[in-house]
Structure formats: C-alpha cells, structure tokens
Design a protein around this nucleic acid. Structure first.
Length: 876
RNA sequence: GCCCCUGUGGUGGAAUUGGUAGACGCGCUCGACUCAAAAUCGAGUUCCGCAAGGAGUGCCGGUUCGAUUCCGGCCGGGGGCACCA
C-alpha cells in the first residue's frame, strides 16, 4: 500500500467504477425508504465555479450519507439551459445559442464528474431540449385550460436601439445595459399566470414549512405582502360631469379581494371614462380606525380621475407629466420630495355628509397597489404628516396612548403606536383594534365600504420577447383569437436557422417560422413569438427528475412516490422568485388534478457564498491574486468578497482538483465555515485539507500493513481500548447528527478529533476497528480516499454502498465525569467523580477541596447548588 | 423608512434545555528529523502577570446561586423590501 494517497490516479478509477456499476442509480423499486436530495441545477454558463462546488458537495454528502443509511436515494443533475447569456454569446461570438449551451454543458458535466458527485446521471435533463420543453408546453396548456393563464397589456422596459425588452436588472440608471440607450416604457400584450389566485395558500403554506430557514419564509411572506384593512368609497361633492356613472377604481380596482378571498386583476385605466361621469372613487386603508383624523384624500397621478381632471386643467397635466419623469432607483425614491397638486375638487367624508376634504394628486400614491387612492391621516402616518405640513392641512390626533395625552399635539412625528380613540365621535374610548372592527361593520351595514385584503404579490408575467426559451404554444388567428396548439402538434420547436445580426426578437423576424394555419378554422394565422420566462423551466424540473416518461411530463404515481424533495440546497438569491414560482406551479398542478403534492420542497437549505480576497492597484484597477504578487506599483489588499469576474478574484476549481484531487477540495468546502455562511477560499485552507486527506490515508495504510484484517473480522468483542471505543461511538453519533443537521463544519471537527485520538492510540483491535469506522464516517465527504482505503483494508464492495456505522448506546455514556466546582459562580476547582454520583457525595467532595476552602476565606457556605454530573456551586 | 439576522482569541469558528468559554481548523512560536529546504512529527498558543491571581464572548444595565445563552436600552456589521396607504 502506497505511503501517500494519489488522487490523480485514484479519483478517475473510482469514478469510472461507480459509473460502470450504476452505484448511484435511484432504483425506485423495492421497499427501502426513499430520499430525494436535490441541489439547484446550474445555468450552463461555461465552467463550474467554486459556488457550484460548495453547493453540490453539501448535497453529495447528504445523499451519500442517506444511501449508506439504507435509503433509496434520488440525487439527480440537469441544466437550466435557456436564458439570455446564450443569446449574448450568439451576438458577440457568432455562435448559435444552442451550440454554445450544449458545449458548455459538456464541459461542466465533465467537471462535475471529476468531483465524484454521487449523481444519477441517467436522469440528466436540459431544459433547452424539446423533450423537456415540449412537456412544459403541455403543462402550460393545461393551466391555460384551467383558466390559470391569461393575456393582458402590460408595460415593459423597451430598449429602442436593441429593439428588445429588458428585465429590470438590465436597466441601469434608466439605460439599457448593452446599448446604453434611454429605456422606454412600452405596452405589450403579454401572458400571465394567476399566481395571485394562490396568494392565500402560498402564504398559509409557509407556516408548515418548518424545515425552511425562517429568513426565507419571512422574505416570501413580505413578498406576498398581505394587508388587511378596508376599502371604502369617497363621493365627490360635485360629480365630474353632469351624467351619473359608475365609480372608478371600485369593484375592478386594485389587487383586492373580498372576504371570500376571490382576487381580481389590476385595473387598466380606461381613458374613455373621462367625460362618462365620475361621482366617486375608492380608497384602501389598513387604519379605518383613524377615519376621523382624515384631512385630505389623494390619488395616484396614473388614476383615471387624475387623467379626467387633467383634460381641462393644463397645470395638473404638467404636474402628472412631472411625476412620471422621476427616477425609480432606490436612492432617487429615498430623496424624492412628497409633492401634491390640489385639484380643487372636494370629497365627502363617508361618516359626515357635511364634512368635505380636499382631493390631491400626489406623487407618492401608487396606482398598482390597493386602489391607487388613499385618505390622509397626518396624525398617525408619517408620510401623510409630511404632506400635511407642507400644504398646511389640519392635523388631528385620534389615537392617544393614554387619556391624559388625548389633546397632546402632534409634533414632527406621527404617532403609530397603540392606544384608544379620541376626537372620534362614536369611536371614542375604543381600542384601535375594536375601532377598526366597528368602522368596517358600519361601512358594510351602510354600504359605503367593506373589510378587504390587499396583496403586494402580482400575477406572474411569463412572456419574454426572446429566442432562447420555451416557445409559448399559442397561435394567433384574426378570426378565432388566441388558439392553443393541439397537443398532438407539440412540441413547438424553436427554429434552428436564426439570425442575430439585426436587433430585435429573432423569432419575430424569422421569415417563415411564425406562419401557420389556424388549428381551429384553418385560416392564415401567426405563432406566438414570445417565449416563456426561464423561471417556468425551473418550476417543475424536480418533478421531471422524479419521473420522465417520453409521452407525458411525468407519471403521476411515480412522481408522488419521490416528492416532495426531502432536502433542497441552493443559494439564497433564489429565496423569493424561483422558490415561490415552484411552490405555485406545484399547487397549480394539484388544483388541476395532475399531481397531489402541496409543497415541492420539504426541507430547504440556503448555503453561503464562496469569497476570496481582492486586490487593486493604485489606479483602482482590480488585480488577480497572482498579478498582485508580482505587481510593480503599490497594491491595496481589498475586502474579502464574493468571487466574481469583475473583481478578478475567482478561483477556477479545475486546476485545484488537478493539484490536490477531488477529496481535498470537497473537504475544504465542508470545513470551518458553517454552511449557511460565507466561506473564504484560501491557499492555506486547501493545503490543510490536503494534509488531512493524507493523515487518514496514513492511518488506513498503517492498519492495512499490520495485516489487521484478522482482527477486523473478529466480531465486536475483545481488544479492549475502552476509552478509544467510547470516543469512536461518540463520534459516530455526533457525525450522523451533524450531517442530518447539515452542520458539515461540525461533522468535520468530529472527524478531526477522532483522527487525533487514533494517531495517539497504541495498536489494538479496538484501534483497527476504529480506523475502519473512521473511513466509513469520512466516506460521504472524501469518497475516493475512502474507497481506496476500504479496498486496501481488504473489504469487499464499494464503500459508497456500505453500511453507515451504528453507535452503541452503552458506549455513549461516560463512566467518569468532570465536575466543575464554583464558589459564588466562579470556577475554583474541578474534580472527577463516577457518573451518577449522589448530590451529597459531590457536595462533600467540593467542600473538601483546598481551593474551595481558600476561596471561601473562612466564610460558612450559605447554600450549595449541585447539578448532578455537571457542577457544584458553593454560595457564601 | 420598515422588517430580519448578526457581533466570541491573530484568524474561520465550537459550546444540549442558562452550568468548566475558546472544541476543531488555519496562522504563529519553540523543538525533533535534515548539509539544507520541503514534507512529517512533538510541545505551546484568549489577554495581563515570573507566579499566586485577576480580567474576558460589541457597550450599558437587569433577572439568576450561575448569562456567549434570557430581558431592556445603546453601538457596529450584513441582508430583504421599499413612496405598500
């Protein structure tokens, strides 16, 4: 047996063997319990980076541990293969997006295989294959039939130079990231999925996801943004025209729901309303209790009433135009002044027909939240207060924390705390909560308002005006309107002959692709040229992994046997969108009766980033660590930051694997930093991991060289290094518990401790068995080394399929314990005593201690606290 | 602005339900082996102090026999949402 472990030779040998023997195939039959371990599949950007290595190593340890613990494990891998970068590459490098993507996949698959991940490659999928996206089109049509898909006009960011739609992230300071052109808002007809239909369920379900990080649940909760309150009508003192007409922004208004939970789409301001007669509008508030503190009403500049009034009021039209100019970046909004325009119109207070309030158009009122209109209560809302001070509006306190403060004037700070109602007529004396109920009850009884719920969540716009995505399987016919592509004509395949020379959507300008006969009437029609948001692709891939028949998206029974995913691991950057969309998609499939799974991911873990030091030269140019070392001028060592190409601090995993082997890299990824926190890459760290791999190897080689296999087979008994045996069994218990808890850094520390103990222990049958146990415990983390050592020690079969050691409960308890002895809570001495010693005995031993006597300085103990097997505290 | 998380040696971080703070790794110091270096092995490493001893988990206070842990108030770092009514 070699003195050193040579990964360059061993890694590939074992990887080949695992592949040949199908070691990691999920069988899906038999009665073993099942475990589905999944890491977020990568976008094939070119090469694997350290973040992938960390993510997949964590999942791999869990998958291997579960397999050794007797589970039938599903641990698949695939490619989130549609998206913008492929089109960018096509434009810049003149390669076809498909060719670019597939070549990247080949590179990255080879890189992943070199890391020895225990993946079931037989289930590999790429979302850009028609064999995947064709099924996605079928599911889209299922949702369409079920009424969960609709089409409406929606604003997009339009780059007039590239003639393309931009995602919000691609708009930088109001300009297109590629062209630098000023971005325009443009209205396009787009497809939406009714995720808001599920807002309540998605929110409610969060409460039962007890294996998700609180942080992610909170982020989703905020994103869904449920606000309970009241919607009510303000009548205008004088209708806008003489004719009676319907209220505006009322029943159709806002993403609101009645108490039955039904949701409506947001309003599309209708210019024709102007002149049709407007006599009222609705506002939304979460504080109906403060209704007697109202001092103005305000509507959004986008509100139909604002538009109607502007027609005869040029100053207002100017004001509205001015509001639309403002930037939308966080910083601009932060400093943006609260501005309003007094329309001169007055509205009637719903609880007092003699009381009228001025109506403003205000720049801080958003059309797409609530009803696009508010009432202002300056005393109890800071924004309203700022506004009221600026325009000299009255400020009346209506909530006071105590009766004495009822007439306390409001200064520059609005009061939003608890209290009882004052200056509020029939509400006086009620708590805020009771007053809310009372006002809603009266409004509902009198018919001018109702309790309601408003959501921040919007429906999911899935149309993308791009080539490299799943074609939306719809045909537009002048006679029949939008028509679904018949199922037997799926998949709608992307054309291969595509031109990226001219700007715009390549599908749109393809000479023939979009021409088609209408499936309904046979007349001339056009294909939908938008493709689906790539988040749709990733909303169901975990189902396809579990079951992949050729003729259907999945087999229901088989998918239900694997789902939900037991442990999902990925970056926190997907905390909201991807995870919310996947939850929605799963529930939508459940609602239409395709799959009886409520939540796709039972356990979720979000791992930290891999970081590295940064360097800059005197001019602020980023330098790689290698450049910094040999740099002529002065070099500044910057902060430790996430590895990124722009900061030039990336470390390519492949050369590291070449140098140290897969196991040292994997070990480093698991060491030191808790997995949810950032991990700083360092050369010293990887060298430390390399040393540890060799230390385990030496122990194994030593025992193998001893010819100790005779001891190993010799059934549990003899050998008698009981201290070591106890250490081993404590380690078995600790490593298992820590892997279960995904506390890999602690499992790593447990293995270091056992290794330290083994290196010090004299040869014995106990030690030989202990080394074998160490190899098995380390196998999920350093699998190549473990296989090699396993074979060298003469064991049969792959260690990947060997049994996880079982801790003997009898060996987990210590015979002797160390007791801390305190005087007045300060440690003065320690003593050893048999486990389970009587309180009296421990007290006696403690009081006899020299150090205790000295610390007492002659004072008599007033009280002695004894915690069995832990400590004695003498109080004097 | 609102919400959430976090603060422990030179450093990454450990520490069941409150019960010996600093496990384990990295780094560093000294020593062994070597002509030398690397690798490896051994000893040490919270701070002050020769020692006895004292101080110590961001800061201030509280509860407790006992607080890194629980409570209140500050300060620092990170994240999410953001003119959300």
């Amino acid at each position: 047996m070699a003195a050193r472990f040579n990964p360059l030779e061993a890694d590939a040998r074992w990887q080949k063997l695992w592949e040949e023997q199908g070691t990691f195939h999920a069988s899906g039959d038999g009665d073993r319990p099942r475990a589905y371990v999944l890491e977020m599949f990568p976008y094939p950007s070119g090469r694997i980076h350290m973040g992938h290595v960390r993510n997949y190593t964590m999942g791999d340890v869990l998958a291997r541990y579960r397999r050794m613990s007797g589970f039938d494990v599903l641990h698949p891998m695939g490619w989130d293969a549609f998206g913008m970068p492929a089109e960018n590459a096509a434009m810049e490098k003149k390669v076809h997006p498909g060719a670019w993507t597939r070549s990247n996949i080949d590179t990255m698959r080879a890189q992943l295989k070199r890391l020895g991940f225990a993946l079931d490659w037989s289930r590999e999928l790429a979302t850009c294959d028609p064999s995947y996206y064709g099924h996605e089109q079928a599911l889209f049509l299922d949702l369409h039939e079920a009424g969960l898909v609709y089409r409406k006009q929606s604003e997009v960011n339009w780059d007039p130079v590239d003639m393309t739609v931009l995602a919000n992230e691609q708009v930088i300071d109001g300009r297109g990231w590629r062209s630098g052109a000023l971005v325009e808002r443009r209205k396009l007809s787009q497809w939406f999925l009714k995720i808001t239909d599920f807002a309540d369920e998605l929110l409610d379900g969060l409460g039962r996801l007890d294996q998700w990080p609180d942080k992610v649940r909170l982020m989703q909760e905020n994103w869904i943004g449920k606000s309970q309150g009241m919607r009510f009508r303000f009548d205008l003192e004088t209708p806008l025209t003489g004719r009676e007409g319907p209220g505006v922004g009322s029943a159709e208004g806002g993403r609101t729901s009645k108490s039955d939970g039904s949701l409506r789409s947001p309003p599309t301001p209708d210019p024709s309303l102007a002149g049709r007669g407007i006599d009222s509008f609705e506002v939304f508030t979460t504080r109906p209790d403060t209704i007697f503190g109202a001092s103005f009403a305000a509507i959004s500049p986008d509100h139909p009433i604002a538009a109607a009034l502007a027609e005869s009021n040029p100053a207002l039209a100017d004001f509205i135009a001015e509001c639309k100019q403002g930037g939308t970046t966080a910083a601009e909004l932060e400093t943006a002044e609260k501005k309003g325009f007094d329309t001169g119109v007055r509205v009637i207070h719903p609880l007092d027909p003699t009381w009228t309030l001025p109506l403003y158009v205000a720049n801080f009122v958003l059309m797409d939240y609530g009803t696009g209109a508010i009432f202002g209560c300056p005393a109890h809302d800071q924004r309203d207060l700022d506004f009221a001070r600026k325009y000299g509006l009255p400020v009346t306190r209506v909530v006071a924390p105590s009766p004495e403060e009822a007439e306390e004037p409001i200064g520059e700070e609005a009061y939003s705390g608890p209290g009882r109602l004052v200056n509020s007529r029939f509400l006086d004396g009620l708590t805020a909560e009771d007053a809310i109920r009372e006002v809603i009850a009266r409004a509902e009884a009198e018919g001018w308002g109702e309790g309601t719920t408003v959501w921040r969540l919007r429906d999911w716009g899935v149309s993308r005006q791009r080539y490299w995505g799943t074609p939306i399987p719809i045909v537009h016919c002048d006679a029949c309107g939008p028509v679904a592509v018949p199922r037997d004509r799926l998949p709608v395949v992307l054309p291969e002959d595509i031109d990226f020379e001219t700007p715009g959507n390549p599908l749109d300008r393809h000479p023939t692709w979009s021409r088609i006969d209408c499936p309904d009437c046979g007349g001339p029609a056009r294909r939908e040229t938008d493709t689906l948001d790539t988040f749709v692709d990733s909303s169901w891939y975990f189902i396809r992994f579990a079951s992949q028949p050729a003729d259907a998206p999945f087999d229901r029974a088989e998918a239900e046997r694997w789902l939900p995913v037991d442990q999902y691991i990925g970056g926190v950057e997907h905390a909201i969108l991807h995870l919310l969309y996947a939850r929605f998609w799963t529930r939508a499939l459940q609602r239409i009766g395709r799959l009886d799974v409520e939540e796709p991911f039972k356990g979720l873990f979000t791992q930290g980033m891999v970081t590295h030091v940064t360097f800059q030269d005197s001019e602020g140019k980023w330098l790689t660590p290698e450049e910094a070392e040999g740099h002529a001028g002065p070099v500044t060592r910057g902060r430790v930051e996430k590895m990124s190409k722009s900061k030039r601090n990336t470390v390519d995993p492949e050369p590291i694997v070449d140098q140290y082997g897969a196991d040292a890299v994997r070990w480093f990824m698991l060491s030191d930093s808790p997995p949810e926190r950032d991990l700083e890459w360092s050369e010293a760290g990887i060298q430390g991991s390399w040393r540890f791999v060799q230390r385990i190897w030496r122990l194994a080689a030593e025992e193998a060289g001893r010819g100790s296999s005779t001891w190993l087979g010799g059934g549990g008994g003899g050998g008698g290094d009981m201290a070591l045996e106890r250490k081993v069994h404590r380690t078995i218990a600790a490593v298992g518990a820590n892997i279960e808890a995904l506390a890999f850094n602690k499992a790593v520390a447990n293995l270091y401790e056992l290794t330290n103990a083994l290196e010090k222990a004299p040869a014995s049958p106990s030690r030989s068995r202990a080394v074998e146990t160490l190899i098995r415990l380390a196998a999920p983390m350093v699998p190549h080394l473990a296989e090699e050592a396993w074979a060298a020690m003469g064991r049969e079969g792959a260690i990947a399929l060997a049994q996880w050691p079982v801790a003997d409960p009898d060996l987990l308890v210590e015979e002797e314990v160390t007791i801390a002895v305190q005087v007045n809570g300060k440690l003065r001495d320690t003593l050893t005593a048999p486990k389970g010693s009587a309180k009296e005995a421990l007290e006696e031993m403690a009081l006899a201690s020299e150090k205790v006597i000295r610390a007492l300085e002659g004072k008599a103990p007033r009280k002695v606290i004894v915690v069995p097997d832990r400590l004695v505290n003498v109080v004097a």
